[in-house]
């Protein structure tokens, strides 16, 4: 699956909104979409990690994408959704919830409609983007979710923790 994604960006994307912008995640990364629910705060985590939820008996961490992208924090409402994604973190398949303003649709984006991400001027780190999809009259920013999750900040947190652990035990 991953190979497929790497080879070609063409495919289905789940699109969602953050503010007025459209973002897309490759649909195969998506596990499911759920409404907002109570999140248990976990101390000693970065700001964008909102905590954990109980997803049918599984405890999964929740990341607020707005905060991750340095956008203003927004109160959650009934439109706010959590997109549960399957990602590889440090080589293992993990589930992670991403808080988005609201989900939009699943759309097929042809390879010819995808342009590489701009080198500068984008609101968010270009490393997080795989490209810009043009569908109808909209531009969808295609996110590299693994890149986001494995970004330095995130990894640094975990690594830091791991070190701590080893030092104690």
């Amino acid at each position: 699956m991953l190979e497929l994604q790497v080879n070609s960006q063409e495919g289905k994307y789940l699109t969602f909104y953050l503010g007025n912008e459209d973002y897309g995640i490759p649909i195969l990364k998506v596990k499911e979409i759920i409404g907002m629910m109570d999140i248990t705060y976990v101390p000693r985590t970065p700001e964008f990690i909102k905590g954990v939820i109980n997803l049918r008996g599984k405890i999964i961490p929740i990341m607020d994408l707005r905060l991750k992208f340095g956008m203003d924090e927004k109160d959650y409402n009934e439109r706010t959704c959590i997109v549960v994604v399957e990602v590889l973190i440090n080589g293992s398949q993990r589930h992670l919830g991403i808080v988005v303003d609201t989900v939009s649709e699943v759309m097929n984006i042809n390879g010819k409609d995808i342009e590489p991400p701009p080198q500068f001027g984008a609101k968010i780190d270009e490393n997080f983007l795989t490209g810009m999809g043009k569908v109808k009259d909209k531009v969808v920013m295609l996110l590299d979710i693994e890149q986001i999750v494995n970004s330095e900040e995130f990894v640094a947190l975990f690594n830091n923790m791991r070190e701590e652990e080893t030092s104690i035990v």
Binding site: L14, I27, L28, E32, I33, I34, R79, V103, V106
Partner: peptide, 20 residues
């Protein structure tokens, strides 16, 4: 409206499943 929204999410989930 709420239901429509939920249905939307459901349909998206279904789409996800279908894609998988």
């Amino acid at each position: 409206d709420e239901m429509a929204f939920q249905t939307n999410i459901l349909s998206l989930n279904a789409a996800v499943e279908a894609a998988r």
